[in-house]
Amino acid sequence: MSLRHAASSAVTALILALPEQVLAQGCAMCRTTLAGSDDPLVGAINTSVIFLMSMPYLIVGSIGGWAYMTVRRHHAASPAETHESVEVEGDHT
């Protein structure tokens, strides 16, 4: 085992050996704030998190829908041309 592999293995083992609570301290402020349930900030942060979390799904879904409709419309408009375009050199060998 090379020195580089030994070092990376040691770092990995150290990370895995750390207690879970230590890793959870990355968001200490949020954790402390959200612990109190009476604060209106809790609901605000939760709403904000849900909003931000939903955006990638919304964007990917919209782009996927747009791409699907565009490709479908293109196939309907020019089926012959589309079939031609997928022909590549290797198909006829």
């Binding site: 604060d39 209106p40 900030l41 609901g43 605000a44 942060i45 709403t47 904000s48 998190v49 909003f51 931000l52 955006m55 990638p56 964007i59 782009i63």
Partner: peptide, 22 residues
């Protein structure tokens, strides 16, 4: 899509302050 995420991040920050304000 990148721009949308940028605005979404700004809006999310705004929501935190807006919804928590009395």
């Amino acid at each position: 899509a990148f721009e949308t995420m940028l605005f979404a991040a700004c809006i999310a920050a705004f929501l935190v302050f807006r919804l928590s304000a009395t």
